[in-house]
Amino acid sequence: MQTKAAVKKNKPSGNAKGGFGGWLKFQLHDWAKALKRDYDVYLLILPVVVYFVIFAYIPMYGIQIAFKNYSPALGFADSPWVGLDHLTRFINSLYFGRVIKNTLIMSVYSLIISIPAPVILALLFNEVRTKRLRVTMQAISYAPNFISTVVMVSMIIMFLTPQTGFVDSILRVFGYSAEQSIINEPSAFYHLYVWTGVWQGMGWSSVIYSAAIEGVPVDMYEAARLDGASKLKQIWYITIPSISPTIIILAIMAIGNVLNIGYEKVFLMQTSLNLTSSEIISTYVYKSGLQQAQYSFSTMVGLFNNVINFIILIIANSIAKRVSETSLW
């Protein structure tokens, strides 16, 4: 890299004048200088660039097989084109309505619950004056975050097992009477997915809001107290507006990932009896793609998911920009 930089440097160094050619020369010269000065920084970033090219951009290039009939022998580029056949097949398939509905319901439901929950928890933590107690409670609330998906789902299933699961016993006190576990109940699946997610993630997500709340200047509260603002009013008019940029950024990120819901968890929570509620786009991609080896078809399904996701992200960002002047870009 060093020698390349040296060679480039020997080229005549044009100035910005002289049209495109001059501009190009100027740019090259500039790059040569940068390469020479910071060659070690470029060496550092090289493996990361290579990684993203191989494991992010080549797969993106491979998305073209969604419009082709992929054959392993021919590879991404040479497989024959079939246009939108796979998309039509997906839209006309029995599963289309079901997986779209489940994906949308579960993602919207979990957004509505999981965005405010950690904010509320952080506000509650803020009311604990004894620092030690607060720190202990926070540490406890982080714990579920470290439990693996496999363990989390098996805990859900074990606790819901009739006879031995304590959550099942509680449910029965409140009138659940079916013989089987409620995990098999399609009507309960959304709630199970979302609320166990809150149990697991709420504490950890609250960390960032707690930090933001600590950053709110104390004299604002003092001034408000002198003006006779109650605690609730202080929270509503001082704390929440102060931390709202953090909330909005995290909310946009969450909304941008709206359709990438925790398929690893959903996949493990699926039983043959709850599939009408639990089959989502990504688990469908896995099953049709890797278990049944319909590579092109499931790439199309995945692309469909990805594109909608991206559009939602852009919309969410532009709304946030208009409403609050906080946005990702």
Partner: peptide
């Protein structure tokens, strides 16, 4: 580089193309 890396946070090739790579 920032743009190149950040884009991968929001858009990806998806499960199957990655698997094939």
């Amino acid at each position: 580089f920032t743009l190149m890396f950040t884009f991968t946070m929001f858009f990806s090739g998806g499960l199957i193309p990655t698997y094939l790579v």
